[in-house]
Structure formats: structure tokens, C-alpha cells
């Protein structure tokens, strides 16, 4: 039995959770068709349920009473534990989001077993050996998960989400979870919604202009935004940019951001770390702008311009406007 914790986004199953379900299917097949069950917290719209069915999910355990309205890692972990007890799952997994890693670390700590973060594949079932990203993705670790349940998270965009050949029942099972005072004590007391919101169209954009640390500061994005506008595209940024608060998180491309697949991606001042690459590698053509000819983004790109983005991008914009 494999249990997958899923997350939802805009009424759909999050893409990274669909990737985890795809990973789970590979594991299930290797184990001779082990059933895959899902645990979810909060409301689960019909559209999301239909998705779960197309990913061959057997049962969906849903914890949606009021105590789950505000997020708490401990409370979600209690939901996962309750579902694990019901399904006798020997594998408990989730997508490698902040939440996925947090919740499963709680589950693993409570169960007294190991947790592997950011798994990208597995080598065998007996012993169960997984491969995971370490050292910022530059190194792969082979790790053995010899306890049960085996607990791990799947690195974002390490596998491509693809529905199963035959659908599953995705039968809804209400999950009663008794939460401890400790679970409830760490609930978020309030959320200040982000302005601008999601849906900048990044995911489906035909052209994406990327900007990274090379932008230099919150005021360094003007030329890239203009280029995006001139090409009818969207701006995408690296995690350094969102961590430093230069641009909002919904613009982030990568393993812990959006996965893009445009006709053309123009990353400017982005080094091309493996986690960024995970989100942009399915771009058809990449034109990198970077001062460093050895930057991974340059060596992996289709085309490159070596130079300062603060000179190169305005020059491109001028040339486009004078056509």
C-alpha cells in the first residue's frame, strides 16, 4: 500500500502532487501493482477528484473538518498518520514542497523512521534504495529506506505528471482525525493574501523572460518586463529573486515554483541551478543572457549572449521597437 499526501491549487490537484502520483505508479508497478491511496486535507473539489481517478487512485481519505481550516504541519501530519493506519501503507510520500517536507518530517519523527527529502528515483525495492538531490541539487545521494513506513518527498518536476492507462475508483473515505492540543497550537493565526495573486499566465506563456540575481535589486526588472511585454510574454524569476523579496513568489520558475514550457525562454542573470532548470528544461528554445560564459544556464542553452543584462536587454528592446 502506497499513501500519497496531495495538495490542491486553484481547485485542482497541484501539478507537483500529480507528479508524486506518477512516481507512486512507477513504484506500484515495480511492486506488482500495489494500490495507491491518497490523503488530502481541506475541501476537495470534484475536478480534483476526477484527476485523482485518472491517476489510478484507489481510495481518497479526506480530512476536512473545521480544525483544518488554518494550516498546521502537525495537524496535517495527524491526518497522514490516521490515513496510514487505515491503509496500512508501507510507503508514505508527498511532493517536495515546503509543506510536503514539513508534514512528512513530522510523520517520520513520530513514527521513529527516516525521511528522505527530494527523491528523484528509486533503484530497487528490496532493499528500497532511493536517489535524492543533495548539495543544492549538484549531487545525488543513494539512500536506503529500510524501515516501514518508508517516508519520502519527491523533488518538484523530477518526473513528468502523466495519467494512468486505466482509471482508479478514487472512492471518497471520510477521515476522522483526533488532533492534539499541540497540533492546534501551531496553526497559522492569519494569512495576509498576496497582491497580484496567482495566474500571471506564466505556466502557459509562449514566451517567458527570466530574471535572476543579475537583476541586481528590486528596481532591476524594468527592461525584462518591457521585453516580456514586447513579445507578449510573461516574467519568470529565480528563487533568489523571490527569497530576497524583489518579486512575488508566483513568478518563480523551478522545482519549488512554476514549471514552464514556452516556445522561447530568455533567462537573464540566472545561473541555471538544477532546481531552476527543473522548471524550465522543457522550453523549446533558450536564449541565455549572462556575464559568465561558463554559467550552467549558458552551457545548457540553445543560444546565448555574453554580457551585462542591463545593457543587452535594453538594446534588444530598442531594436524590437524600431522594427
Amino acid at each position: 500500500m502506497i499513501l500519497v499526501l496531495i495538495e490542491t491549487e486553484d481547485g485542482q490537484v497541484a501539478e507537483v502532487s500529480l507528479e508524486s502520483l506518477t512516481f507512486a505508479r512507477g513504484l506500484s508497478a515495480a511492486g506488482g501493482g500495489v494500490p495507491i491511496d491518497v490523503v488530502a486535507v481541506g475541501a476537495l473539489p470534484d475536478a480534483a477528484r476526477a484527476q485523482l481517478s485518472s491517476y489510478a487512485v484507489r481510495d481518497v481519505y479526506l480530512a476536512d473538518d473545521d480544525s483544518f481550516t488554518a494550516y498546521s504541519g502537525g495537524a496535517w501530519a495527524s491526518a497522514v498518520q490516521a490515513a496510514q493506519a487505515k491503509t496500512s501503507a508501507v510507503v508514505v510520500m508527498a511532493a517536495g514542497t515546503n509543506r510536503g517536507c514539513e508534514v512528512l518530517a513530522h510523520v517520520a519523527a513520530r513514527a521513529g523512521v527516516a525521511m528522505a527529502a527530494n527523491v528523484i528515483g528509486f533503484q530497487g525495492l528490496a532493499p528500497f534504495v532511493v536517489e535524492r538531490q543533495v548539495v543544492g541539487g549538484q549531487v545525488i545521494e543513494e539512500m536506503v529506506l529500510d524501515e516501514r513506513p518508508a517516508v519520502f518527498t519527491v523533488a518538484g518536476h523530477a518526473v513528468e505528471a502523466s495519467p494512468a492507462a486505466a482509471p482508479g475508483a478514487a472512492a471518497m473515505q471520510a477521515l476522522a482525525v483526533s488532533l492534539s492540543p499541540a497540533d492546534l497550537a501551531t496553526r497559522a493565526v492569519r494569512t495576509v493574501p498576496r497582491e497580484g495573486g496567482e495566474g500571471s499566465g506564466l505556466k502557459s506563456a509562449r514566451v517567458v523572460v527570466g530574471a535572476g540575481r543579475g537583476a541586481g535589486g528590486p528596481d532591476g526588472f524594468g527592461p525584462c518586463l518591457e521585453l516580456a511585454e514586447l513579445l507578449g510574454g510573461s516574467l519568470g524569476v529565480s528563487r533568489v529573486v523571490t527569497s530576497l523579496g524583489w518579486r512575488p513568489h508566483h513568478e518563480q520558475v523551478g522545482q519549488t515554483g512554476t514549471r514552464i514550457s514556452p516556445e522561447l525562454y530568455i533567462p537573464c542573470g540566472i545561473s541555471g541551478a538544477i532546481q531552476h532548470w527543473a522548471g524550465c528544461s522543457s522550453s523549446k528554445v533558450i536564449v541565455a543572457v549572462n556575464t559568465d560564459a561558463e554559467a550552467p544556464m549558458v552551457t545548457k542553452a540553445t543560444y546565448a549572449v555574453i554580457g551585462d543584462m542591463h545593457e543587452v536587454v535594453p538594446a534588444i528592446n530598442e531594436r524590437l521597437k524600431s522594427r
Partner: peptide, 23 residues
């Protein structure tokens, strides 16, 4: 990778590429 040029002088080559890509 195919290097289109260095600095702002590469702008022409970049825009020619954009045109050929139809973007």
C-alpha cells in the same frame, strides 16, 4: 550552445532569431 555575440552589439542577432522563431 551557439553564442550570438557579446554585449549590446548582439541585439540585432537576437532580434533576427526572434523573428525566425515567429515570436
Amino acid at each position: 550552445v551557439q553564442v550570438l555575440g557579446e554585449g549590446s552589439s548582439a541585439a540585432d542577432a537576437v532580434v533576427d532569431l526572434f523573428v525566425s522563431l515567429g515570436v
